[in-house]
Design a protein around this nucleic acid. Structure first.
Lengths: 239, 239
DNA sequence: GATAAAAATGACCACCTGGTCATTCGGCTC
DNA sequence: GAGCCGAATGACCAGGTGGTCATTTTTATC
């Protein structure tokens, strides 16, 4: 059929088409993306796009599948790398990996954001379920294990803990792309150093809010202590 | 010009038009919204819409201004009602008011969500700045006051605290509208009771993570104690 | 009821969309 | 160079868009 015809293309051209399509969808979402414009910006004819992908939806799904595979791969890598680490260190590393991914593939992330709130994507429901594996497959077991090991307080609904982690981590990533969400913290297109500090500060708050009794937070809480080895990103203004 | 011609309309018709427009924009965003479809569903001619609002953008701005006014009014009300309350009680009440608003005006909230991630809205930048007053005008002074009074730990960047609160509260609201974000917590279109419990659970985690030394959390933290007078929404599964 | 002013209408316009397909092109083999 | 065949092309289609405006309908005044 069509798609193997696309696969028969030579590498540079294939990559160029994928990149161009990612750019188009990330800028305009699905419906508002224009194959006329895409074809023109790629310097190929619109007819070819239809030969390769059948229709607009086919092109989008192809792009989307590639992106999901990319994310899964990276997450699996982090999971493996931090298998032996403390719960909150896992969180820290996951966040750092997220930031890194997003810097490397900003447009891929934007497609995801668009799809989240723009309801006219094709197969939106199914695709989002595929993407939200982040909570289902990644965070949830991590939380359950953390609870079992006493690192995370176990008197709360684990699903709710997952929800909180997901909320705060996702927003942290969004703030890197959407200037209105950074709230003066410097997250939006901030330097790696600033971002690193904020990750540490975030993880510390999470530790205070969620840590279990099994962990070694000595005093009333771990204020500045425990696992923080890079200086938490805090001003000390008044008191 | 046009808009006062709209104002001269009789009340039921005016309201019907506003409601129809909110429905259209909330379903389709700006670009994909169709004035043909809107006119037809309203049972008036397209020409009239242009007489009233000049163009599509004018109609959208009119709708948007009304919505912003609605939100401001409600927030001011909550601020006044909780002026004498504890910091975390303020947060709790604000969240509850947010949930309430969102149930009363679900389509207004959806327009906001669409605009956040769909970049082709007219005047998007300016409008979002106007809307994000939530952090700037509402949360920030609250946090600063909380820090000054020792209710909130003051060794962190206040902007970062605002960011965290904003993130978690916003996501909490989003989860009521977007099924993929609720993560099995039951927030998505959940009952008032479930939502109430989750608000309490959320505030408790925030208290543990952010409370200052001025507050009365006696032990290593306020586990289940302190200000929680409605039973925190927690299962007690294993331990 | 006649007249004038205001408001509602919908046919019409230029433009853009996703999608089609007969035609042309380009690189093989012999 | 001839012949072949898959690949690239872009004119073309039906359908939908925001926007216009001459015309008709409604309303108000006398």
């Amino acid at each position: 059929m069509g798609i193997d015809r696309f696969m028969r293309l030579k590498e540079p051209k294939r990559e160029k088409i994928v990149e161009g399509a990612v750019e188009e969808f990330s800028r305009y979402g699905f419906r508002q993306a224009s194959l006329n414009r895409l074809a023109q910006s790629l310097g190929i004819s619109k007819g070819s796009l239809f030969q390769y992908f059948g229709n607009k939806e086919g092109l989008f799904l192809f792009i989307f599948d590639q992106a999901v595979a990319l994310v899964r791969k990276r997450l699996a890598q982090v999971k493996q790398e931090t298998a032996e680490k403390d719960f909150f260190e896992k969180i820290r590393r996951s966040l750092a990996a997220g930031v890194d991914f997003l810097r490397r593939h900003p447009r891929v992330y934007r497609i995801y954001l668009k799809m989240l709130f723009q309801e006219d994507f094709p197969l939106r429901t199914e695709l989002l379920h595929r993407v939200r594996l982040f909570s289902a497959e990644y965070l949830r077991p991590m939380v359950l294990k953390g609870m079992a090991q006493g690192e995370v307080r176990s008197d709360m609904d684990p699903d709710f803990v997952v929800f909180l982690l997901d909320a705060v981590m996702d927003r942290f990533l969004q703030a890197q792309c959407v200037s209105f969400l950074d709230g003066g913290t410097g997250l939006y297109e901030g330097s790696a150093e600033v971002t690193g500090r904020l990750i540490d500060a975030l993880v510390e708050v999470l530790r205070n809010g969620l840590a279990g009794d099994g962990m070694g937070h000595a005093g009333s809480r771990s204020r500045g202590g425990a696992h923080d080895d890079s200086g938490l990103g805090v001003q000390v203004p008044g008191a």
